[in-house]
């Protein structure tokens, strides 16, 4: 699926909830079902700076597509990162770099987070973009089309 389609799917899912508490419940469920990251990947390098809770994000490339795994010690943060992973997993670096992230506002996530969490969200997105850029450049060096 394309990034836009997945985002629309998420918007639809969130529109089913009236109360923010229910949306949180959903985020918490997502957090609980986030696939386990390989413990070896929870390195200092993979730790995202700027989050109050600790978040690790790892990224690998397969056949020109990016795959992310992550973990956090806070469950709501895990839920948020699992949304981001759902959107960006299996996408091309260039598509990620050019994606529009307004769905986060549409579902109201940004304004419903505490300021420290909202900063954390920005840091997570930045890290995803950094990985994408790094892999894009690496891909180019290997003579691949990008």
């Amino acid at each position: 699926m394309e990034i836009k389609e997945i985002q629309n799917e998420i918007i639809e899912e969130f529109s089913a909830f009236d109360e923010w508490l229910d949306k949180y419940e959903y985020l918490i469920d997502l957090g609980k079902t986030l696939p386990q990251i390989d413990e070896k990947k929870k390195t200092e390098d993979n730790l995202i700076k700027g989050c109050q809770s600790r978040v690790w994000l790892d990224c690998r490339m397969e056949d020109g597509l990016l795959y992310f795994t992550a973990d956090s010690d806070a469950i709501i943060t895990k839920g948020i990162i699992s949304l981001l992973i759902r959107v960006f997993n299996g996408q091309k670096p260039d598509d990620i770099l050019h994606s529009d992230l307004s769905f986060l506002e549409t579902i109201g996530l940004k304004e419903n987070l505490s300021p420290t969490r909202a900063n954390g969200l920005v840091s997570m997105i930045k890290q995803i973009m950094n990985y994408s850029l790094a892999y894009k450049e690496k891909g180019c060096q290997n003579g691949r089309e990008c």
């Binding site: 508490l21 949180y24 918490i28 809770s53 010690d73 709501i76 943060t77 987070l113 505490s114 969490r117």
Partner: peptide, 14 residues
């Protein structure tokens, strides 16, 4: 097993 940020955030919504 519970992160204090999570707890405070949910309590706030309540």
């Amino acid at each position: 097993g519970i992160h204090p940020e999570d707890a405070a955030q949910i309590l706030d919504k309540m």
